[in-house]
Structure formats: structure tokens, C-alpha cells
Amino acid sequence: MPKKILIVDDEPQIAMLLNARLRANGYEVLAAYDAIQGFRLAVQSAPDLILLDLRMPAGGGAGMFENLKNNLQTALIPVIFITAYANDDVEKACRESGAADVIRKPFEVDEVLRKIRRVLKEPDPPGGATSPPR
């Protein structure tokens, strides 16, 4: 059964691109464009993984993360933060706060897929293919 990934990002194009990429790699994808919608979807649809943009307006990213962790239904869903801050301190802080991993923008597709597979405990496909052949 395909794994379900929830993307929460206030930039609809980022969400769309990630959506296309993840679908092409066999994941089922849901998207939300703000923290409120995101949280609601997380509770309703029980995704296997959440990709969460850290910097949504008015602290939405961090707020939603807190809500997820405080809610029994969602506390155990692994979360990967997406951030534009290319800063080691921030990365370490993200991980230490309980996020499963961190993805920096602009993202390397291979890296993104690798991290997702690792968090979902999936084996790497043979040959390390990241996309369907041209």
C-alpha cells in the first residue's frame, strides 16, 4: 500500500512541485497551505509522514508542529521540516526539537527522496533511481 505524505507549505507552487515529484515516486500525496488546514488534514487522514515548511506566516510552522506533538493522534507521525535557512544551528535545533529530519531549500531532489525513504524506513531502490526513466 502506498505511503501517504502530507505537505504543508504556504507556497502553493512548492507544494505542487513536491506533489508531482512524490507521486512520480509512488507516494500518495495530500497538501495544505496553512497551519490550520494542515493540522486538520493530519488528524483526519493520518499520513505516514508530514513535510512541514518551517516559516509559514506568524509562526505557523512551529505552532503546527507543537500542536501535532501535543495531540495523541498525530504525535507519532514523523515530521520533516523544510527551511530556507541554510544554517547548521537551525538544522541541529530542528532535529533536537523532535523533527525526524530537515530539508533545505533549494532542495536536491535525490536528497529529499532519500531522506523520506529513510524516515519511512523504506529500502533504497536498486541503482538508486529517483525518477522514471526518460
Partner: peptide, 10 residues
């Protein structure tokens, strides 16, 4: 957030 404080609400 750049300083590493993630839990900022307003």
C-alpha cells in the same frame, strides 16, 4: 528562528 528558537508564536 535563525538563532535556533523554533517555538515562536504571536
Amino acid at each position: 528562528q535563525q538563532l535556533g528558537y523554533l517555538h515562536v508564536v504571536s
